[in-house]
Amino acid sequence: SPFPAHAVRNKLISHLLLTESAPLAANQDDSTNDGSLRTLLTLCDLLNRELLVLIGWAKQIPGFSGLSLVDQMSLLQSGWMEALLVGVAWRTQGASGEELVFAGNLRLDKAQCRAAGLADLYEALRHLTAKYQAMNLSAEEAAVLKAVALANSDASLVDCPDSVQRFQDGLHEALQDYESSRREQHRAGRLLMSLPLLRQTADRAVEAFLRLHRHRRVPLHKLLLEMLDAK
């Protein structure tokens, strides 16, 4: 494990960390000479690949694969953008200045986001990342928050509510356990209280990408489009 043993006291959380893939790098788009469109297409390609990795990771969250296929789909369709934004917040945490770190080689500042048609999203994401930056998230917290974001669906059609509830309870317990082992009794609650802002920001992100696709005809990969359409 790349993480010090003393930092990982909780089996479920250490499993979440170990099954995470290495951070993806952006592949520079070269299909256009328009710089801001190139940035946007590069970002969309990165999101599409991250989504693929996220789906693979979700299947390894203890309890997830035991859910019905319908519920697995509902949870992912509802929480995928939230989970991806936790990743952005985590990567941005160590960055200085006003950048958003989508990948090690894809750091966008306000002007770049505005040029790409993502001015609103930039503001919303800076607000979210500043909140997590102030909390100084640990790797364990970022991983469990991602899993919680996936589990915390408000999907109206849940096939088996009891199983989904048990899945949520397991993650909640792991977070509580982890924080009490660090003698941080308030952090679990604080992290859960960040979920409304996370969802609100994810909704804005979904709207932004759909708007770009529908109004500016920005081409999107099939998986990304399918997941955006599910919203």
Binding site: N48, G56, K59, M73, L76, H221, K222, L223, E226
Partner: peptide, 20 residues
């Protein structure tokens, strides 16, 4: 589930290649 074909395929652990 036709509308959510790719996600469905990915979750089913399909061995056939998925067109993304």
């Amino acid at each position: 589930k036709e509308k959510h074909k790719i996600l469905h395929q990915l979750l089913q652990n399909s061995t056939s290649p998925v067109d993304l």
